[in-house]
Amino acid sequence: MNSIVIWTIVILAGLGLVLAVVLFLIAESFKVEEDPRIEQIEKALPGANCGGCGYAGCHAFADTAVKAADLSAHFCPVGGNEVMKKVSAILGYAVVEKAPQVAVVRCNGTCAARPKVNVYDGVQSCRVKAALYSGDTLCSFGCLGCGDCVSACEFGALSMDSETGLPVVDESKCVACGKCVKACPKGLIELRAKGPRGMRVYVDCRNQDKGPAAKKACANACIGCGICVKTCTHDAIVLENNIAYIDYSKCKLCRECEAMCPTGAIHGVNFPKELDREGIKARVAARNAAAKAEAAKKEVSNE
């Protein structure tokens, strides 16, 4: 009996040893010589393999970064500047810092503001819904509400708000990989500069209908009135196809456009103070009056 046990142990141990040696030899003979820096970079990267950098994954990023002449085409949105400093150090390249970005959903067509005019009865997928028709509201530009962006997000940063029917970005989790941007068939999601302490101002609408049609479709729509464009002293807002767009690289976060917008389509977020709508309105009105007087004076002097 004892001898059986002993023999069993001996044979199994021997077998294990032989296989280990075979495996080791095979691994040695098939070893691929790789630039050791690739592994170093890969270790420095977050390893999410999200593809947010535009490469197939972290390994592809590291592989191409080693071969590249500089790091202008390589930026890991997940790791941000922190990680990129490490990568630059490994490769000995100059550090290219980028302003951190965040995904912004530019539709505020809540269930309350945007009445449903038909009932969608297909698979719950924005892609399928968008291929079928313009959506279950009168707005053909707004959020379809099936959550393709939510399922595209690999970082759990997006969720559907059951009350508004719109996706919500959790800024602390969003790494600006851009997956949701690609997933949205209506092109509503944009990667925007996160802004100082997260403060940023943007137009929360993409409706290109003319004013009355936009208004009819959604109470929160941008009606393309152009007041924001006239108000902005930083030349940051453009009006095209009946829709305003704020260039985040030019915006100085003065919030004047936000206060002046008649439909509340412009949103400022993460500001420490509440918007002093009346104060700004008075300020802008005074400025406009002064400018008018100035112009009148000029006209007079020109004469």
Partner: peptide, 8 residues
């Protein structure tokens, strides 16, 4: 009346 819309 909100009618149903769905793919075929």
């Amino acid at each position: 009346m909100a009618y149903i819309v769905s793919p075929n």
